[in-house]
Design a protein around this nucleic acid. Structure first.
Lengths: 249, 249
DNA sequence: CGGGGAGTTGAATGCAGTCAACAAATGTGG
DNA sequence: CCACATTTGTTGACTGCATTCAACTCCCCG
């Protein structure tokens, strides 16, 4: 972990601004909002961004890299709650419940923008737009959680895997649209299992089945989905709706 | 559905205020906040509060009754996202994504307090406390969703049922602590199945098993849990943590 | 008193888990 | 640069939980 406080990149030029908290803000408010960001923090792959039970002093926006948010379970396993990619907001807690109910770990090397929560809160009164930006992000997070719940509750393993892979492919691709060789896919089959409540062994069998059907190519930390409509059909979901949910806040 | 605009009960005296949006507000702000509430709406059992795709003009706080929030799935079944009880906030949407992604239906007769969303939004600037109140509620909703996800993803049917029944028992009981005969439990076994992604038939078998073990009594729309610790153990969850998550916002 | 929703029971089926072993890829130190 | 250890991915056989289908009962409500 390494903190940078000098020569931070400008939010106006930020490649992920449209996807991030400030995508909701009009340009004229950006200066005020940017002033809230005091530093960037760089985490190495495998490092924790925070632990369950922590009371965070900073909110984090992922600038680049992949982060896994998860809960440790009593039986020693873990439940992955979501994968945080560039633009995602983490660890903004305020009010009576100030402790985080999950942990976050860097999958790849990760760069995050840090915003002191106190500064956020002090600014709400003079910049109500910031409220709407935050609310929009947290509301979207809830919507995505409910969609995930829907996929996990009643679908077959194949449909769940299809839903997750398609979701990650769409999100990562919206960040790097130009690349025709597929997107980075830094998580293991065990991670996928921990996210969907399935064993890594069964994930492996489903991956092979999806590969055989020509729906995905996935090797060397790289993922390609040739026909998103077909994969969406396997996932029992509407592709257009899914894209609306996943792209921008 | 019936709307009341005269002689509304005072928020100060509201029995569910501690559990609701304004539980976060200091008493001196209550007058301003209460002025935002323009009406109460009464729904009959079976009536929809809103449909997926609607753009709501009012946010709703449940004053009494049970509401089911759910998504319709492509295969004709439905996924229940959560059960809304007295104090819960529904249908507050603002910003670019103004459409609701789920429907809400009254299980019992329901009374809800209605707050025009526009009024909410106009008030944020002069009453930043309202922001923190709203954020706290939506953040808690997300936390509960992630806990539900965790229960549904990896637990056996018995653990899932135990978790849901215990959660509803704790919430309903915190609203009516005095009653020793059990709490109202107006949902069907099929509803439980739709919430957990299990068939009603299997829910029935699990209910019988839990009854045989003396962990629950559930009949005539009434639920009693004698030993919450034991049921929490079956649910693979920590009772103290669960209560913190479910009681108040 | 009749109809419909909700709950109950049994038998057969099938999806995903478990266990065990091995192969391939990745990383590390000498 | 190679040797070795560790992580990740792959395969097969067996087990078990939850589904499916079908029939039936109970209870509430009009």
């Amino acid at each position: 972990m390494k903190t940078i406080k000098q020569n931070l990149p400008k939010c106006q030029n930020c490649a992920v601004r449209e996807m991030a908290l400030f995508g909701e803000l009009e340009t004229q408010h950006l200066d005020k909002a940017r002033a809230l960001r005091t530093s960037q923090i760089i985490y190495s792959a495998g490092e924790y961004l925070y632990h369950e039970g922590d009371t965070p002093s900073n909110a984090l926006t992922i600038y680049q890299g992949w982060v896994i948010l998860f809960k440790n379970l009593v039986d020693g396993s873990r439940q992955i709650l979501r994968f945080a990619l560039a633009g995602d907001l983490l660890s903004y807690k305020t009010g009576k419940k100030s402790r985080l109910d999950h942990s976050a770990i860097a999958v790849t090397d990760v760069t995050a923008c840090a915003f002191p929560i106190q500064g956020f809160n002090d600014t709400i009164a003079e910049l109500p737009e910031l409220f709407f930006a935050i609310h929009s992000v947290t509301d979207t997070t809830t919507s995505r959680c409910y969609s995930t719940l829907t996929s996990i509750a009643k679908q077959t393993a194949e449909a769940k895997v299809a839903y997750l892979l398609l979701s990650l492919f769409i999100r990562e691709r919206s960040l790097n649209p130009e690349n025709d060789k597929g997107v980075i896919f830094p998580i293991t089959q065990e991670d996928v299992g921990d996210a969907l409540g399935l064993t890594a062994i069964h994930i492996n069998r489903v991956f092979q089945s999806l590969r055989k059907k020509g729906l995905i190519e996935c090797r060397n930390k790289n993922l390609w989905v040739g026909d998103q409509y077909k994969l969406a059909e396997i996932a029992n979901t509407d592709l257009a709706e899914l894209k609306k949910l996943l792209i921008a806040v």
